[in-house]
Write a protein that binds this DNA or RNA. Structure first.
Lengths: 201, 201
DNA sequence: CACGGTATTTGCACCGAGTGCATTTTTACA
DNA sequence: TGTAAAAATGCACTCGGTGCAAATACCGTG
């Protein structure tokens, strides 16, 4: 229940009382019961047995609760990009990493769905997601820039990054509305459909 | 200075004291002076000579100030889509309307730039923009769905709409960072670059 | 075992956005 | 002159979030 020891060694000082993951769990339960907006931070803190002020030592904002360890995911994606052969056509590479980044084991699928239903379904979270996805786009833009010999801030890398995020979002929305289809194939299909549309005369 | 008469006939009742456009002007001046986040709604109301509460009768939120009458723009874009010949290749049509929707007369360019620098530069506004752009995407998705004989909520229309918004955002960002290039050509170029990337082997 | 350094928790006061509601003010028109 | 409508206003309140200082719990050391 307690005791964190998450990598950081400590030679003194008070132990952390809880973890972000635990708070997330408590919060998700409340969100399921009464919805995101009707759940206050005070509610969450009370349910977790901590002070309201303490909550903000675990999450910078209520909007950040559903994001888990997103940064670790970004690092995974960077590694995925690095591992690709450099003669793979650019958009094939991007599509591949898009699919792999969003691959989750079957047993985690329900959790992932709930997380994403929140992020993409609650207006406040949908808005906030833009700020979190910026880092994601930057990972894509850096790879594309690298491949094209351009700065990641140049027009084409940025455009491809933005567009790819758009593809991902539409595939996710479709996945949330049609649970029977696999996320991976939706991402793959959406990416290919965009290419087809561009190719069509 | 007063007197609105914006289309709506009135058979009695108090006159509006100001307009959204006037409030926007007052607010923009304050944003220029002290920045968006350091400007409170109370500041804006005071500078405009109205009560704080009244501000919220003109704008649903502080975040909506820079959006002018975006809805009119959407209607314009819908009309633009309708006017296109149906044998124009789909993505040519989308690209055309993207460029036309964002065409502004030279004399309005500085204003437009300031508006967009706010919307895309201030985190709170960037986040909020996602909610406003949803309606924009829907206009694109409806056209694409119409062209493909699909529902606007189907995967491909949604994907193209999302991706096109992404293209627009990257072009805008580039325009803000490089004022010497024209927005129209950046939008056109970005759209074509995405197509090229997809076409490349 | 007491002590000192350290990290964490907590309480408190405060700010700003936004809302609900009742009241007041201003207007057109009969 | 009176009346109904529309708008402005004031007020109390909720909620997210922050700054700061004090309290608490833990570690290692003498």
């Amino acid at each position: 229940m307690r005791h964190d020891t998450s990598g950081v060694q400590r030679s003194g000082g008070r132990r952390k009382v809880t973890t972000a993951a635990e708070l997330e769990q408590v919060a998700f339960d409340l969100f399921d019961e009464q919805g995101f907006e009707r759940t206050t931070v005070t509610d969450i803190a009370a349910a977790a047995g901590i002070a309201r002020r303490t909550f903000f030592h675990y999450f910078p904002s209520k909007n950040d609760i559903p994001w888990g360890d997103f940064d670790a995911g970004l690092e995974r994606m960077r590694a995925e990009f690095r591992a690709l052969p450099s003669d793979l056509p650019l958009m094939d590479a991007v599509r591949h990493c898009l699919v792999e980044f969003n691959r989750v084991p079957d047993e985690q699928a329900p959790d992932h769905r709930r997380r994403m239903r929140l992020i993409l379904g609650v207006p406040a979270l949908q808005a906030h997601s833009t700020l979190r996805f910026e880092a994601w786009r930057e990972v894509v833009a850096e790879y594309v820039g690298h491949r094209l010999g351009q700065s990641s801030t140049a027009l084409t890398p940025q455009t491809i990054a933005h567009a790819t995020l758009g593809v991902a979002l539409s595939a996710y929305q479709h996945w949330l509305d049609h649970p029977e289809q696999s996320l991976s194939s939706l991402l793959d299909t959406a990416m290919r459909e965009l290419a087809l549309a561009h190719a069509a005369q």
